[in-house]
Amino acid sequence: MWINSWSVNWTARVQIILTISKLVALGLIIILGMMALAQGHNENFQNAFNSSSVTLDKIPLAFYSGMFAYSGWFYMNFFTEEVINAERNIPLAIISSIVIITILYLLVNVAYYTVLTADEVMASGAVAVTFAERTLKSFSSVIQILVSLSCLGAITGGLFSASRVFFVASRENQWPTIFSMIHIRHHTPLPAVILIYPLVILMIFIGDLYGLLNLNSFPRWLFMGFVTFGLIRHRYKQPDLHRPFKVPMIIPGLFSALCLFIVATSLYSDPLSTGISCALTLSGVPVYYLMINRYQGPAWCRKALHLFTVKLQILMEVVAQEIVTY
């Protein structure tokens, strides 16, 4: 969190270093797997596509896990304002990253199943570590370190991008004003970054990775489907509006339908986690209306909120973005 709070430039540089460590880890796993495959270890691929054990009620949850692994692409849209030449660089970054990650993940999975059986993969708490213990023996700690750095990179990137959502929501008067402010010297959205921290700690204490993944995936893909559908409607309602880049309508149409279908079927697959997630999502509706109408509330409440905001400004040394910009 302290990287995200201190400097945007340093956060980007650290993120580049951590991304390189992830690519090194993936490359090492792929090389070891291809070496084992070249030696004739292909017995684990016999009947690899046997679907007799596949049940329909688990397919939506499998999609949640699969799409989570490839979901980094939409984080780019969270900090569009901070991207140089966004009209060119955002589509280029998304397309190139999806192609590269798809190829790398495919080769990594081939490497995993060359060395490990399907049961061993499912039983492993960290597949890369189990793979390294089987192939690198006493040097398996190398993969452990690289995997740890990769996880740190994912957390850093998530903090960097998710904080921008609270920052913009506050700027649009949908959150308390304090979260739309930036640090007077570092120019980072410090209050929005700090807000993420207790949420991360809460997720760590939950402990159940797959339950947490299902809990998080329901609102994510629900709103992804709604937003994409809204963009389609917006394009038909205002066809002459300038748009930096376009895609064929069939792509967002299929994407929106897939998101909403998976969300709907996940309520049957895991009613507990998705039900809790749905309830938490709906609990935001009254909060939203309270924030929208906060300027129409009692005078004492508005005065207390203003005083609290001023005290937090002094404590965190933050001001409105316009003051720092101009």
Rank of each mutant, 00 (worst) to 15 (best):
I3L: 14
N9S: 09
A12I: 10
I17M: 01
L18Q: 10
I31E: 03
M35Q: 15
H41W: 11
N42S: 13
E43W: 02
F49Y: 13
S51P: 02
S52I: 01
S53N: 12
V54L: 14
L56H: 12
M76S: 10
F78H: 11
F79A: 15
T80L: 14
V83H: 04
R88F: 12
A93T: 14
I94Q: 04
I98V: 15
I98D: 04
I100W: 00
L104V: 15
L104D: 06
L107W: 08
V110P: 04
A111T: 09
Y113F: 15
A118V: 11
E120P: 09
F131Q: 08
T135R: 13
G153R: 08
A154L: 14
G158Q: 13
F166P: 01
V168T: 07
Q174R: 11
T188E: 05
P198D: 04
L199D: 00
L199P: 00
M203Y: 03
L209P: 01
L209V: 08
Y210R: 10
L212G: 07
L213H: 06
S217D: 08
P219G: 04
W221L: 13
F226E: 01
G230M: 12
D240I: 02
D240T: 08
H242E: 05
R243V: 07
P248V: 00
L258Y: 07
C259R: 01
D270S: 07
L272D: 06
A279N: 02
V287A: 14
L290A: 09
R294N: 13
Q296K: 12
P298T: 11
P298R: 05
W300E: 14
K303F: 05
E317P: 00
V319F: 00
A320Y: 01
E322I: 03
V324W: 06
V324Y: 05
